[in-house]
């Protein structure tokens, strides 16, 4: 495999620093990854094409997919009912390949604000939204969000009035969760495609609110 020639001081197309990659010194765990992968292929448990395809499938999953689901629910009351009844099926019906994931959509209303966490590990609706942000997997978020959710939300820049109940959903077992944020009043005349740009990743985790696109 050729070396990357990118400048490590620069940001990637997604605006994040590049992570140590192909041209850094080979470490023990990378050696283990190569060895495990090659052994599984040699012994016929998996194929190299499957690894390639799985990486592509995961790369194709992103918060944009969830944003389309949310925007569709905002635009179509019948779909919203279907989403709240069975979010997995509703997402599949929109054409998203979410694999075997069991998904529940939870609606934010004038009286309830919802937040998702996994205190035991890092469960996340990855088959719709892609891999979780690093902070979602952190000790700080996992520990604090269940005991001081309002303080944590304020650190994310979200203030929830005291007359709005907070519901924290701990993904302890087999279900994964996506928050259906409340549609901002000023977006009522927008098309579904335009609405999707208002739906941020954080608003689908519950630590953010929909925002006007930059």
């Amino acid at each position: 495999m050729p070396h990357d020639n990118h400048d490590h001081g620069a940001l990637s197309p997604s605006g994040h620093p590049y992570r140590k990659d192909d041209d850094n010194e080979l470490n023990y765990w990378q050696i283990m990854e190569i060895a495990v992968r090659e052994l599984l292929i040699e012994k016929g448990h998996i194929t190299a094409a499957q690894v390639h395809n799985q990486i592509n499938a995961m790369d194709a999953r992103s918060p944009a997919n969830g944003a389309k689901v949310v925007a569709h629910a905002w635009s179509d009351p019948e779909f919203k009912s279907a989403l709240l009844a069975d979010a997995g099926q509703a997402s599949r019906d929109m054409g998203f390949d979410i694999g075997p994931m069991h998904l529940i959509a939870i609606e934010n209303t004038e009286s309830v604000h919802n937040i998702v966490v996994c205190t035991l590990c890092s469960c996340y609706p990855r088959n719709l939204l892609g891999l979780p942000p690093d902070w979602y997997k952190s000790r700080a978020y996992r520990s604090r969000i269940v005991i001081e959710p309002r303080k944590v939300l304020s650190e994310f820049g979200v203030e929830i009035p005291q007359d709005v109940q907070i519901r924290v959903h701990d993904s302890t077992a087999d279900m994964r969760y996506i928050i259906l944020p409340a549609q901002p009043a000023q977006t009522m005349s927008l098309s579904e495609d335009e609405l999707a740009y208002w739906v941020t990743r954080d608003s689908m985790i519950g630590v953010g609110l929909p925002q006007a696109p930059k």
Partner: peptide, 24 residues
């Protein structure tokens, strides 16, 4: 627990492969 660190990194190829190996 302390403050939440909001730094975010892109995943390297070897990390994506680990993820794929778990799924497969």
């Amino acid at each position: 627990a302390g403050d939440i660190n909001h730094d975010q990194h892109d995943f390297a190829l070897w990390e994506k492969r680990v993820d794929a190996l778990m799924v497969l």
